[in-house]
């Protein structure tokens, strides 16, 4: 019935919403569609912004394949994501599990865990530069208690990557909040049933809570995949990609190509490859999640 009424309304009325959303339609056109179109075109050109673009077809894409730095930055990004995503799932789930009580302490700790996510990236880069400082940093001071002579974190291969991973785990607040909400949705009587079956806290967590958390884990993995492909500010400020390009990430190389070497065409090609790589990663995570799921049930 309501459909009939809508059909009979004058055209003007049926299109009224378009007026309301018109700013956003223009925004999508100017700030997304046009830039992406330009990027597609420039990715087929050699363009320094000083001279007019020179059409070279697919050459940017083919030279990417033989660019060792490009391969290196993909590898670094994958290594980074490969550590950060599983570590943050385990850590955030454990913290969320502990936070799932209604005590005052729990509410205060929630704030403390979430606070780092609002700290600007530049400021947290400064803080962690200081914490990881090789001579007087807090982390090496703490290690020296145990008689360990800490490394010069941000200037040694391997340790620099580890430092960036540890730092990223500091801003784990969003997944924690999401897992906590998922845990609170688990009906309490299921836990009681688990207790009656003689399950300990860990088995209850795996068998009772996990199924309802699974979608949240999937969601967070995807968000973190996209975030990992964007990592820029922390390595740019803290390691400048070093030492020896060991923390040189994809977005950083793209930035350098566009704004340091003035290779806009090459950078545009990298942007499109980045979109493809992200999609591949997301599909991969989807496949893994589904596989894990079908073997469970």
């Amino acid at each position: 019935m309501s459909r009939d009424r809508i059909q009979r309304e004058p055209l003007r009325q049926r299109l009224a919403g378009l007026v309301w959303v018109s700013p956003w339609l223009l925004g999508l056109l100017f700030f997304f569609a046009i830039p992406m179109g330009m990027s597609m075109y420039y990715s087929m050109t050699e363009y320094t912004m000083l001279e007019p673009p020179l059409w070279i077809g697919a050459e940017n894409y083919t030279s990417l394949l033989s660019d060792p730095v490009f391969i290196k930055t993909i590898w670094n990004t994958l290594v980074y994501a490969g550590f950060v995503i599983p570590l943050s799932i385990v850590l955030a789930l454990a913290i969320a599990g502990l936070l799932d009580t209604d005590s005052r302490v729990s509410h205060i700790v929630r704030l403390m865990v979430f606070a780092p996510t609002v700290v600007p990236l530049v400021a947290s880069a400064m803080i962690w530069l200081w914490l990881f400082n090789g001579d007087n940093g807090l982390i090496n001071s703490a290690l020296s208690i145990f008689g360990i002579n800490g490394p010069n974190w941000l200037h040694e291969r391997g340790f620099a990557m580890a430092a960036l991973i540890v730092m990223s785990l500091w801003s784990i607040g969003q997944p924690v909040v999401i897992y906590l909400a998922a845990l609170q949705d688990v009906p309490k009587h299921l836990y009681e049933a688990g207790s009656l079956d003689g399950m300990g806290p860990i088995r209850k967590f795996v068998h009772v809570a996990m199924p309802s958390i699974a979608p949240a884990v999937f969601f967070n993995s995807i968000i973190q995949t996209i975030t990992a492909w964007q990592i820029f500010a922390a390595p740019y400020i803290m390691t400048e990609g070093g030492p020896d390009r060991s923390t040189y990430f994809y977005s950083h190389y793209l930035y350098d190509n566009a704004f340091l070497y003035q290779r806009m065409g090459y950078a545009s090609a990298m942007a499109w490859v980045q979109l493809v790589l992200i999609s591949v990663c997301i599909l991969g995570i989807y496949a893994i999640t589904r596989k894990l799921w079908s073997t469970r049930s």
């Binding site: 330009m38 990027s39 930035y255």
Partner: peptide, 21 residues
């Protein structure tokens, strides 16, 4: 759907063309 989709586009993808624009 498009609106949510744009949230998933990483800024590094758009930064070079936006700079030219």
């Amino acid at each position: 759907v498009i609106t949510v989709g744009t949230m998933l586009i990483p800024f590094p993808v758009l930064m070079a063309p936006l700079f030219m624009l």
